[in-house]
Simulated scan of single mutants.
Amino acid sequence: MNQDKRQAYWRANTALIRNLLIVWALVSLVFSILLVQPLNNIRLGGVPFGFWMAQQGSIFVFVGLIFVYAVQMDKIDRKYGVNRRSK
């Protein structure tokens, strides 16, 4: 892989990580801590939504982020011809 292609691959990789970390920060800090009181006015199955988001919802989002990362990195690897299998 030439230098330009490596740099493009690394930019795509870091952009994906940055975007997923932004989602992680929004869910963990904003929705689960900073906005917990306003979100508690919404009920989800009889439970205040802010509480549910802090206890369960954030975990669902975090697991989803793992799958999104795996799928997107696979696409980036294929786009730039990165193959982890040794021949």
Rank of each mutant, 00 (worst) to 15 (best):
N2M: 00
R6G: 02
Q7C: 02
A8D: 07
Y9R: 01
W10V: 13
T14Q: 13
A15P: 02
R18W: 15
L21A: 13
L21Q: 12
I22W: 10
I22L: 14
V23Y: 01
A25F: 13
A25H: 06
L26C: 15
S28P: 00
V30Q: 01
V30S: 06
F31S: 06
F31N: 00
F31A: 03
F31W: 09
L34M: 10
L34K: 05
L35H: 01
V36K: 15
Q37G: 02
Q37K: 10
N40H: 04
N40W: 07
I42A: 06
I42K: 04
I42Y: 11
R43Y: 11
L44C: 07
G45V: 05
G46E: 15
V47H: 06
V47A: 13
V47N: 04
P48Q: 10
P48N: 12
P48T: 11
W52I: 11
W52E: 02
M53E: 09
Q55Y: 07
Q55P: 00
Q56N: 10
Q56M: 11
G57V: 08
S58K: 15
S58T: 12
I59D: 05
I59H: 11
I59N: 07
V61C: 05
F62T: 10
G64M: 03
I66K: 05
F67Q: 07
V68C: 06
A70D: 11
Q72H: 10
D74M: 09
D74Q: 12
K75M: 08
I76V: 13
I76P: 02
D77S: 02
R78C: 07
K79R: 15
Y80D: 00
Y80W: 00
G81R: 00
V82W: 03
N83R: 07
S86W: 14
K87D: 09
K87Y: 13
